[in-house]
């Protein structure tokens, strides 16, 4: 059971990493996520069903998500549409597009076809299936995390890191903030779609509305992570996003299974998630102003 929660959390952590990039690095509250998550699942499902292969499906899912992010950034940059609205517009477009990708259907089942997870289980041989999946997901997320860490150690990554903090500084140093947003949102939504592609295969179906509410869940994971670890090093920053995602899935699991003691139903979880985000915001804010006061007293 605990393995299942962790696998769930690890799949979800890739989305959380994407949300972390848009919200924290770029300071761009990007709602594209609710659409691009399902886009990833839809692309990979259609690729698998049409025999294009799992690997190509996953790569195309990433690219599809990245394109969605690039469109959001471009609408914001070129048409001067506020960032929230740009995301909402693309998210809404993606509902239609996802159904088109799924061949006019709202969902598609991945039954009796190979997915990345059935492959892993076969490959695992005598290893119990939940451990095989767990091991695979740990390695998979590790690779993604290390790649992201490396990216944010490059000059480009460092510069992007300053964008959400101080856009003027980026401009003063000869970098176009618009380009940074295109690259950042592309990367972010690519990861989100990748997460969707994995979840679709894990659940065995892709749904055009798979992403509903995912943005808030991702945000909750990012914020939970921030309570776990304090650091300005990218290694710990991405690590805490992953841990936050697993913790979030754990909390949701307990909510779902033990919530009935306090008369809570699974449909209440979305509300709980939002409250979690609000509480995190309030705590972060009070810590912030406490820190400010400490600094001023010095």
């Amino acid at each position: 059971m605990i393995e299942g929660i962790i696998v769930d959390g690890l799949i979800f952590s890739i989305l959380a990493l994407g949300v972390f990039i848009s919200f924290r690095i770029l300071d761009f509250p990007d709602l594209t996520v609710d659409g691009s998550f399902a886009t990833g699942a839809a692309i990979v499902a259609i690729c698998i069903i049409n025999g294009l292969g799992i690997f190509i499906g996953i790569v195309l899912a990433f690219i599809g998500g990245a394109i969605a992010g690039v469109v959001t950034a471009t609408i914001h940059n070129k048409l001067k549409v506020p960032n929230l609205l740009s995301g909402i517009l693309v998210m809404t477009m993606l509902y239609s597009i996802n159904i088109r990708i799924l061949g006019g259907r709202a969902n598609i089942a991945l039954l009796r076809v190979d997915t990345i997870f059935t492959k892993v289980i076969t490959l695992g041989g005598s290893i119990p299936r939940e451990y095989a999946l767990l091991l695979f997901m740990i390695i998979f997320v590790m690779v993604i995390k290390v790649l992201i860490d490396l990216f944010f150690r490059t000059d480009l990554g460092i510069t992007m890191g300053a964008l959400g903090n101080n856009e003027q500084m980026i401009t003063t140093n000869g970098v176009n903030p618009e380009t940074m947003k295109v690259i950042g949102l592309g990367l972010s939504n690519g990861l989100v779609a990748l997460s969707g592609a994995l979840l679709g295969q894990y659940q065995g179906f892709a749904d055009a509305k798979l992403g509903q509410g995912m943005i808030v869940e991702g945000l909750a994971a990012v914020m939970l992570g921030e309570f776990l670890l304090r650091s300005n090093k990218i290694f710990y920053i991405t690590l805490r996003v992953v841990l936050g995602a697993i913790l979030y899935k754990g909390l949701m699991f307990f909510g779902r299974y033990y919530g009935y003691y306090i008369n809570m139903t699974p449909s209440d979880l979305k509300m709980i998630t939002s409250i979690l985000v609000i509480v995190s915001l309030v705590i972060a804010k009070s810590q912030d102003s406490a820190g400010q006061r400490r600094k001023e007293q010095k």
């Binding site: 490396l150 990216f151 150690r153 490059t154 000059d155 480009l156 990554g157 460092i158 510069t159 890191g161 300053a162 903090n165 101080n166 003027q168 500084m169 980026i170 003063t172 140093n173 000869g174 970098v175 176009n176 380009t179 300005n232």
Partner: peptide
């Protein structure tokens, strides 16, 4: 506060400024 990024390290701040213009994927 406009000249530097507060929640980044000194060295990261200096990397951004040591060369003007678009930065590539190099460390």
């Amino acid at each position: 506060t406009l000249g530097t990024a507060a929640n980044m390290s000194l060295e990261d701040n200096m990397v951004i400024c040591s060369k003007k213009g678009f930065k590539g994927i190099k460390m």
